[in-house]
Design a protein around this nucleic acid. Structure first.
Lengths: 226, 226
DNA sequence: CATCATGTTAAGGAGTTGCTAAGACGATTG
DNA sequence: CAATCGTCTTAGCAACTCCTTAACATGATG
């Protein structure tokens, strides 16, 4: 079930959209202010965001920039102005699609589904090689030597994130933000546990590191084993 | 001209700081609420942010995390509490420096310039070479000849700080402020101990210096061994 | 030579990490 | 609709690392 956060100050519109989209099989969360919306996005990592540009407390373009800075979540913008330059500027600011008010909920649904389809498809990239480790992000496979590794989703994402930065120390904070998509709040203990699991599957331990090295008080890095 | 965003709800303090810092050559932008502050940060990408932790509309720590999630802009935090654990928690939450209220604008200016200096010097891209010593800040590795050095976090940070200023004498006070992040008091004895440990790992002593030289009564410097 | 700054080592405690196990949660299946 | 499976999170404890402090030694300075 795709999840949506809708940021819209007009209560009637918000409730209407929420009700109809819920019926259509979306998991909808509403916010009436920019700050509330930001928080909800961070907390629930929705699949798509609907953003009204005419919020009373903050310029819509600024909020869009903030959202873009935090996540790559697709954003569908609803605007009252139909000005061409405005639309272009909005799309340049990082919106994935737009709607001109007043819009029907059916229109909105169509846009949402289009955006969701697009975001599923866009996984590009080639293989990553580190030592005897071969990782294919788009196929979601990891092969060590000639043995295929059975990694859980999070384990795989974590390994890919490290593999894209071979030799560079990455902090747990960064991992929470980038892999877990929880820029704040989240406990960083999960990182330790997942690292431990990956190490086990790679046939190594923290005491006898091969690919994954811990830098005490700083983070971890993936390296070619020596 | 360095630009500053100051987030502070007390109008008198905000205006005072704004006026004085403007005279000193800063481009100052004030915000009285968390949301306004976030907006200004996104809009103007300042060189540094001054954040009062005692905002009425949002917990300071939360706002700090949000700022951290959005940008890497340095943040100097002003707090009313001088509690040690509090300070530590604040720095861990991503603050780059802190001030205890009430503070003079001169103190603030000094902290700002320190932070700015740090972020300019933060050329973390490349390696640093001194004699047979090769230091890579992003991988957090230090190699002497062909032997990898096992340095603790503080030892590494200290060595990097010295290595970025080869041949320049650095005082212990400066090291306490810049490496230990304790601009005020604080025993400087730890510096001696850490220097000693680094020397040992570099295979030298104070009596037979190689890379690290002491200038009695002044400080230490890193040099190419002769 | 008296005094002060620095050098070095050792020990304690605070904090971090590693790893196992148990619960929570959702998806899948019979 | 219950049972099962896979996954993620949390809790907890052991092991470990690191930093500080203290204490004493050594060296510099006037």
């Amino acid at each position: 079930m795709p999840s949506v956060v809708i940021i819209e100050d007009d209560q009637r519109i918000r409730e209407l959209v929420t009700r109809v989209l819920s019926q259509k099989g979306f998991d909808v969360d509403g916010a009436s202010t920019a700050l509330d919306g930001l928080q909800k996005i961070v907390q629930s990592s929705p699949d798509v965001v609907v953003l009204d540009m005419g919020l009373p407390d903050l310029d819509g373009a600024d909020l869009l920039k903030m959202i873009r800075a935090i996540t790559d979540v697709p954003v569908v913008v609803a605007t009252a102005r139909s000005d061409d330059r405005d639309v272009i500027r909005t799309l340049n600011a990082g919106a994935d699609d737009y709607l001109v008010k007043p819009f029907s909920v059916e229109q909105l649904e169509a846009r949402l589904r289009a955006v969701l389809r697009r975001s599923v498809a866009d996984d590009s990239g080639s293989q990553i090689l580190v030592g005897d480790l071969r990782i294919d992000p788009s196929a979601r496979t990891a092969i060590l030597g000639d043995e295929s590794l059975q990694l859980s989703p999070k384990e795989f994402d974590l390994l890919v994130y490290l593999a894209k930065r071979v030799g560079v120390v990455v902090s747990k904070r960064e991992l929470m933000a980038e892999v877990w998509r929880q820029p704040y709040g989240g406990s960083e203990k999960s990182v330790d546990v997942h690292i431990s699991w990956i190490r086990k599957k790679l046939g190594e331990t923290a005491a006898e590191p091969g690919y994954i090295e811990t830098i005490h008080g700083v983070g971890v890095k993936l390296v070619e084993p020596s």
